[in-house]
Structures are given as structure tokens and as C-alpha cells.
Design a protein around this nucleic acid. Sequence first.
DNA 1: GCCAACGTTGGC
DNA 2: GCCAACGTTGGC
Length: 153
Amino acid sequence: MAYWLMKTEPDECSIDDLANAAPAAVIWEGVRNYQARNFMRQMQVGDEVLIYHSSCKMIGVAGTAKVVKAAYSDPTQFDSQSSYFDAKSKKENPRWDAVDVKFVQKFKQLLPLDAIKAMPALQELALVKKGNRLSVMPVSEAEWRAILGAAGI
DNA sequence: GCCAACGTTGGC
DNA sequence: GCCAACGTTGGC
């Protein structure tokens, strides 16, 4: 049982989109970074995920979800119509993986990035390290608790 | 829209 | 295997 943070642009897949899909899960696809992919491959069913909204008006952690299907071949890499298409990925050895995640909760108030940066307990979070561009990253149990505590949960 | 920081690519 | 050029990310 582990904790993670995943970034999403709310235009693509917001916490509300996850909530609207519930109780169905959502395919977390389109990750095209090897480090992020490797973290996804470590995810196990039941792991919990912070949903982080990036590149938008209200930047921060918006809620949580949980992994309901471990990593499998991301179908969009073979779809030439998809913006995630990767011509160099081979069917017999796919480069990219997806996981399925299911909505758990939306925070009453989004926990903003500047609040996260100000919390002593979160100084080691990859998210707040300078220049960090990882879209999937591990979160320690202490960090998880600090974030949920700050969100009033 | 800007731009710093980073990851990836490809020539050598 | 180096590294310059390029493309992308993502906060501001």
C-alpha cells in the first residue's frame, strides 16, 4: 500500500471528471515520461493517489483517488489518431503504461501549491523541488497525512 | 505569452 | 557516449 501524486490538467481530466465517472474508474493514460512510467509500474491496486491540478487557474491538490487496476499497456500509444500516439512503440514491447484510478474524494477546498510550498512537512516532496516536471511521483505516508490534514480531512 | 528547467533526440 | 539542438512542462 503506497501513496502517489499525479498531475493532470483539469481541462483533460479534473477531479470533477473523476467524480462524474464514479463509480466507474478512469484510464490514466498519456504519460510519456520514463521516470513517471516507472512509478506507475510500481503502483498496486489499493494505492492512494493525490490528484493535482496543473497549468490552470487554481493550481494544487484537488482531491484523491485510488488505483483499481495496476499498470498495463497504454492503448493510446498505438492509436495513430491520438495525440499520445508513439510510432516507435512496438506492440510486442510497449513503451508506455496506463493505470485505472477511481474517484475517492474531492477536497472541500483545493489545497493550493503555495500552501504546499509553505508546509515544513512537504519540503521533500518532488513537486516543490525546483524545476521538477515529474507528472507521477511517490508520496510518503507522513506527506500524505500532512496534505490530507491541511485539506481538513 | 514568457521563459527557466528539464528530457529526448540524433549526429558525430 | 558526448553534447548541442530541440521540444515540452508548468508556474508566473
